[in-house]
Amino acid sequence: MARYIAKRLLYILLVFILISFLMYLIYNAIPFDRARWLADEQKEAYKYDPEGLEQLYQEKRTELGLDKNIVERYLMWLGVMPLNGKYNGMLQGNFGVSYTNIQQPVVEVLKEPMKNTIFINVFATVLALGITIPLGILCAVKKGTKLDTGVQVGSIIGYSMPTFITAILFIFIFAISFGWFPVSGQETPGSTLTGAARFFDRLYYMALPLIVMTFCSLGGMTRYVRASMIEALSMDCIRTARAKGLKERTVIFSHAWRNALIPIVTLVIGWFLGIFSGSIMIENIFGLNGMGRMYIISLNNNDFDVVLTLQMFYVIIGLVGNLVIDLIYGLVDPRIRINK
């Protein structure tokens, strides 16, 4: 098992290096010159001194390492080659500078949106799984009943309706008409609450986006669980279990559910890994300061240090996530356990 994990980690490292180099190449191929941009920011100050502006441009090129070739720049970005005499790349914890609004280290820029995104996604994921899995199982067990049909119709609506339509509709119904929730924002304006009071205040503001996110994700997972369970319930072993006189509850949860879990586990783990990714639509409509918005703002502003950091982060999450999924497969299904 340890050997398998070590081997997979080595693969992860190799894939990461390959992908990171490719991504770095792609973003450097975009016709955008950060040094020129920085120099142009000072254009007004150098209005009477074009030579000074050019000198500033050259200084910025040196400062950013843009006078080096692409491989050297990549190695400096990684932190395995010194930039201006100093190792100061990703390996040293320097993910670059964000130039949107104010110049700040990328980590500083991403801190708050990441916290917000995780805050909302943890609840959304737990809530969605907490509803969809039992609902999917129920629908599979009660297949063909009115309840099953009703859930199928509801889930197909939720699944088909674009997120922004659902969000606007829910805002209109629950925030504007009933006034149950705030229309937008992350906490009561001007609030000085702290501790638990602040937590619940934030939760209140997050409620409507959470409901929308949950509603939009119900359809897919419910139908997936249902389909998986229907397939599991038709297996010979289930018939045998029932023939043995086991309680229906035991048949469903100990035998059928365990078999149904194998395809579902990929999705469930994926959902948990997705708590780091923001939703552009939801964040924009509800005015949330999250990762989705940050990502799109950074792309629009050519803020490539932020974009590259995020993409590298998601690459690592994806690679590690795959390893976790493979390991959990073994836990769920002993037949494919590595050290068997």
């Binding site: 209109f172 705030p182 937008s184 409509i285 509800f286 005015g287």
Partner: peptide, 19 residues
């Protein structure tokens, strides 16, 4: 208090007293 509004829902925010 100074806060950002979302264009699509700004009137609703005004109406609901959020701004």
């Amino acid at each position: 208090i100074y806060r950002k509004v979302v264009e699509e829902t700004q009137i609703a925010q005004l109406k609901s007293g959020e701004i």
